[in-house]
Every structure is written in structure tokens, then in C-alpha cells.
Simulated assay, not measured.
Amino acid sequence: MFDREPHPANPAPPAPSFPWPGGARCVLFPGFDVDAESVWIGMDQRNVDRLVTMSYGGYEARVGVPKILKLLARHEVKATFFITGWTIMAHPAMCEAILAHGHEVAHHGYLHLRPEPGQEDVMVEEVDRGFDAMMRVLGVKPKGYRAPSGESSTGLLQLLTDRGIQYSSSWRDDIRPYRHVLPNGPGPIEIPVNYSFDDWNFGMTHRSGSRALFGREEVLSIWRDEFDQMREWGGVTTMIMHPQVTGRPMRYRILDEFLTYVRRYDDVWLATGQEIAAHYERCERDCQAAE
């Protein structure tokens, strides 16, 4: 039976108003979901033999990620790359390059399967195989996690807590970080996502998911307006970008111009997920010590 009683889906209180480091007014969290071909397999495992479909994801290692790494270096921006375990196994050189450029590598499942309540065995396998791939190939034990297809559950949050994940970046219900509350105690820190910054919505169309593409000025207008208001509110602008989308020529230009726009302000903290979570924990400890 499903629990349809009226109560908030998220028991965590609203996010605390911790100050940002160095007197910053707001935060930009550049995050990339590096799915490569795994996103297409996760959608439909028959796609493994549909090589043109798979080539959407193959673009990441061949062109998308190298171009984005150069762009981030030019803007002196460090980002978080949420990478599936399958992608790490299939494209180790691409993932090693991300690390070599000083970016954070975080967990994004193994085969990009959407976490489903009631399928605990699948969730455990997805999480554990992702950890194993990261450690064996990159020597990394990630601190952050973003759920494939952006879905989560109490069971998944508990699993992540048990595995030592410090923060999640999947939920859509706040503008500042907060800590999840689980039945057995505190859960991971959540760095909420701004869905307007998911480039897949604006720049991905394919034969089984045909949709209109948004032009450069349309996307830039959305991103600037969202960022401007978030800066006024003092929140965190969390981006969900995919190298197989933003690594395409015109989409690359959108990111380039947006980062140039953000860099006009000297009161914006550009941070990785791990930096944001570490700052949250310091503020949390200070508040607890003061009580």
C-alpha cells in the first residue's frame, strides 16, 4: 500500500541561513553529469546495439569533455563531475583528465538506472558498483552523489549515509543547502538543484524523445534571470550540465557567455559540491558548539 496521508514528503526543516565564505552573496555550483553511453543503456538496454543512438553519449569522450575542460580552465572555474561507474570503466582516460584538471569527481550510479523504491537490491548494486569503479580506475572515494534521472528515496539516502556519502545534489525543494533527516538520524547534506539549469531540457532531442531545441538567447535569458534572482536571495545556483549537450558548439558558447556574465560580480563564490558541503559542516559545528 502507498502512504497517501497528507504530510510533507521531506521531513527536513528549511535550510539554515549560514553565511557564505569571504562575505560572498551567493554561490554558483557548476555540476556536470558525465553519463556517456550509459544514459542510453539505462533508458533501454537494447540501445547497446543501436550504435547511432549510442554515439550521442560517445561524443563526450571524443569532443565534449575535452572542450569543456579547456573552457573551465580559461575561466579559472573548478567544477564537480558526477560520473557513472560504467563511464569510468569505458572511458578511463577522459575521467583521468577531469581529475588532472583539478575537478571533483562524484558518484552518479553505475549504469544510470533511476533509483526506484522497492528495488533495494538494484540500488545497492548501482551504488556499490559505482564506488568500485571509482576506486579501481581513479583511486577516488567520492564524497558527493547525484541520482541518475534525479530521483531519490529514504532508502537510498540511508544507503548513501551508510556508505559515507557527505552530500547529495538531486532534490529540488530549496535554494540553500540543508541536511536530510532520516528515521535513524541525520542523513547527507543536500545541495538542491535548480531545474532551469538542466541543459538536457533545452538542448537534447533524439528519435525516441523528440522535442524542440531552445536557442542561445532563450537559454541565456533563463540562466541570467535565474542567477540574478538567486544572487538577490543569497542562494546556491546548482547547474546540471551534460557534456553530450553543453559540449556541442552552440551550447558550449552559452556556457562560455554565462560564466563570463557571472564573473562580472565579485561577490559570487564559485565552488565544488565538496567545498559547499565542507563549509556547511563547519557552520553546523559552530552552531552546535554555541548552543
Score class of each variant (00 low, 15 high):
residue 241 M to S: 05
residue 198 D to Q: 09
residue 257 E to S: 06
residue 194 N to Y: 01
residue 194 N to H: 12
residue 240 I to S: 07
residue 257 E to W: 00
residue 251 R to A: 10
residue 246 T to W: 03
residue 203 G to N: 07
residue 200 W to M: 05
residue 254 I to L: 01
residue 235 G to K: 04
residue 238 T to M: 02
residue 225 D to A: 15
residue 247 G to K: 00
residue 208 S to H: 05
residue 227 F to V: 10
residue 257 E to C: 08
residue 259 L to N: 07
residue 241 M to D: 02
residue 241 M to T: 01
residue 239 M to L: 14
residue 253 R to V: 10
residue 200 W to Y: 13
residue 220 L to C: 12
residue 198 D to H: 11
residue 197 F to M: 09
residue 209 G to Y: 13
residue 209 G to L: 09
residue 239 M to C: 15
residue 253 R to A: 11
residue 202 F to Y: 15
residue 210 S to F: 12
residue 218 E to F: 13
residue 207 R to N: 01
residue 198 D to K: 12
residue 258 F to Y: 00
residue 244 Q to F: 14
residue 212 A to G: 15
residue 241 M to W: 11
residue 250 M to C: 00
residue 205 T to H: 13
residue 205 T to N: 13
residue 199 D to C: 06
residue 198 D to E: 12
residue 265 Y to P: 06
residue 213 L to A: 07
residue 206 H to I: 01
residue 201 N to M: 04
residue 245 V to F: 05
residue 201 N to C: 05
residue 235 G to M: 05
residue 237 T to V: 15
residue 221 S to D: 11
residue 226 E to F: 08
residue 256 D to C: 00
residue 234 G to C: 10
residue 206 H to Q: 06
residue 200 W to I: 07
residue 244 Q to D: 11
residue 209 G to I: 03
residue 227 F to Q: 06
residue 260 T to R: 14
residue 195 Y to W: 14
residue 240 I to L: 06
residue 259 L to I: 01
residue 204 M to W: 14
residue 200 W to Q: 02
residue 217 E to L: 04
residue 246 T to E: 00
residue 194 N to R: 14
residue 224 R to V: 13
residue 243 P to A: 00
residue 211 R to G: 13
residue 251 R to I: 04
residue 198 D to C: 13
residue 207 R to P: 00
residue 240 I to C: 02
residue 231 R to E: 08
residue 265 Y to T: 01
residue 215 G to Y: 12
residue 247 G to A: 06
residue 236 V to Y: 05
residue 257 E to H: 09
residue 217 E to Y: 07
residue 265 Y to Q: 07
residue 213 L to H: 08
residue 206 H to C: 04
residue 199 D to W: 03
residue 232 E to P: 01
residue 218 E to S: 14
residue 254 I to Q: 08
residue 226 E to R: 09
residue 205 T to Q: 10
residue 258 F to D: 03
residue 219 V to I: 14
residue 216 R to N: 07
residue 234 G to M: 10
residue 216 R to Q: 13
residue 195 Y to R: 05
residue 197 F to N: 01
residue 210 S to Y: 09
residue 209 G to H: 14
